[in-house]
Design a binder for these strands. Structure first.
Lengths: 203, 203
DNA sequence: GTAATCTATGTCAGCCAGTGACACATGACA
DNA sequence: TGTCATGTGTCACTGGCTGACATAGATTAC
């Protein structure tokens, strides 16, 4: 990896860290792009070359998450029941979280805090997830050999899977200072969901 | 109802109709507040006294929907299983839709079209619904006598209910020109969800 | 009917997010 | 070392949104 590349990832992380700290200090809404750019000594214009917008600072992990899920889905056997495949995909995301570096873990915890203090951001995050849902649902539907646009079961399965992850993520409304604790609750929630469904519902 | 009041609702609907038409003509993103305000001959400043922002023009129905759901929930017996109560709440929303005036129905169909052509707006809508979910989940949890902040079953039940409504709403990806058709599919989806769950799962 | 009041609206000035265009500087590579 | 590619800053601009203030219109009391 060349110097250029290294510098870029360094800048990207610097922006992210500065932004998360500012969000925690003074709130998301009252933090301006100018402030963030100022604290890492780049021009505001440059900020937008690293993140598509202010939102992106708080939604970037979706990019990673849906990529992992799609990759996992593709490796699962085609005749596996959809929700089983999805569970594996969910767990792959959680595995990735648990394997992250201490720095990444710290970022994730800060992000969790920021989201926790701002319902509107949670809404944005859910909205972002919904866009991913459509992609996943199409994948599931085509694996099952049904119409990707109108098969309700595929869409429901994906929606339930994402809801599960989300509820697991936000449900401990108290302060959390450990990434593994969060992941543990998300795993628990996956099992809870499985126990709520009729056996073979997604066959 | 005084003259003042009547004039206000008239203006509100005029704004909404003008906006929806503009969105359909030239797209949501390329329509400006100035254009909308101009076409109903009010100042842009006044626009923001009727709608909180451009988003609101496309999310207003959530206000109505969650209000109906909350009202319905409160009238249900306290010992009823949560998802049963929620199903009634969902159906109350659908009943309200079916009972709407032809003008309202037309607005709703236009809205459906606008959303259909813009994934980002769907994301916004889902995000808005997620904010309502929290309120509903707290209501459900307190009815069940459990901690509104940490009871995962309540949150899951609400999340599943809202997912059901959403999938029913968006799943017919083709053109729809009949409100009843949409409502019918949403009802079908509620029943589909019920058939997927383990009997007594929410007891 | 008139006066006092309350409220909806328009005007103005301004902040912040986000984008395109262009010039410049810095790393990559022959 | 020179050439090319790519990242960065500056500038100018659009559009969403808000606060402050003055005014025009509706409401209420007398």
């Amino acid at each position: 990896m060349g110097l250029r590349e290294r510098k870029k990832t360094k800048t990207r992380l610097a922006i992210l860290d500065a932004a998360l700290d500012l969000f925690l200090e003074q709130g998301y809404d009252s933090t301006t792009i100018d402030q963030i750019a100022g604290s890492v000594e780049i021009s505001p214009r440059t900020f937008f070359r690293y993140f598509t917008g202010k939102d992106h600072l708080v939604l970037w992990f979706h990019d990673q998450g849906t990529e992992i899920m799609m990759d996992t889905l593709r490796t699962r056997p085609a005749d596996e029941p959809p929700f089983t495949s999805l569970s594996h995909a969910l767990r792959a995301v959680l595995d990735d979280m648990e394997g992250s570096t201490p720095d990444d873990a710290a970022r994730f915890l800060k992000l969790h805090q920021v989201l926790d203090g701002n319902p509107r951001l949670v809404g944005l995050s859910v909205g972002k997830a919904a866009e991913a849902e459509r992609v996943l649902a199409r994948e599931i539907a085509s694996r099952r050999g049904v119409d990707p646009d109108s098969d309700r079961l595929s869409h429901l399965a994906v929606a339930f899977a994402m809801s599960t992850l989300r509820v697991g993520f936000e449900c401990p409304r108290r302060d959390v200072d450990d990434l593994h604790e969060i992941v543990r609750r998300m795993r628990e929630t996956i099992e809870l969901t499985q126990s709520l469904m009729r056996p073979g519902w997604d066959a």
